[in-house]
Simulated assay, not measured.
Amino acid sequence: MRNTARWAATLGLSAAAVCGPLTGASVATPASAPASLYAPSAMVLTIGHGDNAATVTPERAVTLTCAPRASGTHPAAAEACAELRDVGGDFDALTARDDVQCTKEYNPVLVTVQGVWQGKRVDYKRTFGNACVKDSYGSTVFAF
C-alpha cells in the first residue's frame, strides 16, 4: 500500500511539473511555428530515508523546471538549473565539494529524480550514506 501511494504521489507531481507549464493561455500562432524554442526540462525530485526505492516513502518532493526558464518549488531553482546545465544534465557528474567533512554514520538518504531533461527522459536514483553526504553533492541540486 505504501509503495502504491508513493508512486501515485510521484506520478501526480511528475504530471504537474511536465504538463503545468503547458496549460497557459492560448495564443494564436501560425501552424508551422514551433510551440517553443526549448526542449522541455521539468523534473520531480524526492528525498526519503532508507536505501531501497521500493520501500522508501518520500519525505519531501519538489518540482524543478529549467526550460524555458528556471522555476518550480525547488528553493534554489535558478542555481540548480545552472549546475545541471554545467554537467549536461548528468546527475552522476555532480561531485562532492572538498570543503565538507561528514561523519561515517550510516543513515541512508535516497534521492530520486523523474521527468525530462532537454527532451530526454530522466529516471535517477542515488543513495547517500547520510544527509551530510547528500548535502555535499552539487551545492544546490539536492538541497531541498
Rank of each mutant, 00 (worst) to 15 (best):
M1E: 13
M1P: 12
R2L: 13
N3M: 14
T4E: 15
A5Y: 11
R6Y: 07
T10E: 09
L11K: 05
L13K: 00
S14P: 11
A15G: 09
A17P: 04
A17R: 01
S26R: 15
S26K: 15
V27T: 14
A28N: 15
A28K: 15
T29G: 12
P34E: 09
P34K: 07
S36V: 10
L37A: 14
L37P: 13
S41E: 10
S41W: 10
M43G: 04
L45R: 03
L45K: 06
L45W: 06
G48R: 07
H49N: 09
H49W: 07
H49Y: 05
G50I: 04
D51N: 03
A53F: 00
A53L: 04
A54W: 04
T55F: 02
T57L: 06
T57V: 04
T57P: 01
P58V: 01
P58H: 01
P58Y: 02
E59A: 06
V62S: 04
T63S: 04
T63D: 00
C66K: 01
R69H: 09
R69M: 09
S71D: 11
H74G: 12
A76Y: 15
E79K: 14
A80I: 05
A82H: 13
L84E: 07
R85E: 13
R85I: 10
D86K: 12
D86Q: 11
D86P: 11
A93M: 04
L94C: 04
T95V: 10
T95M: 06
D99T: 00
T103F: 00
K104L: 11
E105D: 11
E105M: 09
N107I: 11
P108Y: 01
P108K: 02
P108D: 03
V111D: 02
V111Y: 00
V113M: 00
Q114R: 02
G115E: 01
V116E: 05
W117I: 07
G119M: 08
K120L: 08
R121Q: 06
R121C: 04
Y124S: 00
N130M: 08
A131C: 11
V133W: 03
V133F: 04
V133S: 07
Y137R: 12
G138R: 05
S139T: 14
T140W: 10
T140M: 09
F142C: 05
